[in-house]
Amino acid sequence: MAFSFPAFSYVIALIVDAFLIFFSIFHVIAFDELKTDYKNPIDQCNSLNPLVLPEYLLHLIINLLFLLSGEWFSLLINVPLILYHIHRYNNRPVMSGPGLYDPTSIMNADVLTVCQREGWIKLAFYLLSFFLYLYGMIVVLIAV
């Protein structure tokens, strides 16, 4: 039982993952508000857009740690999401600020559904990975 680097990265991952879960909950709620007309899309995009890059960044940090600590399995699981993030950001609408969401197209039913589904899927993924990291951490801590 020793506190190794892999164990450290799992601990960090757990903490960051908790944040990511909050991000995606916020995301889901925000789009639900849009759908039920509670919020003006301009305001909503203004509050969502600044959060996009930090989320991506946090996710990258975890994976960087996994890479460095050689936790290949956890890394492998996260690679598709990284690729998706890159793809998503590359295809964002023309906008001057950071972020993904364009208030003029966000209310399109297709876009709205896609965004909402994305939020739910990410939430599920982060939740599952939270338990995975927990398990991983325990395994690493025990396996000495």
């Binding site: 759908k35 007309d37 003006n40 899309p41 208030p103 003029t104 209310m107 039913a109 297709d110 709205l112």
Partner: peptide
Amino acid sequence: VAVHTFHGNFFVRSTDL
């Protein structure tokens, strides 16, 4: 029945507005 997409010149402020 629900509106899915709007076409024209405007800003869509909520799902049907």
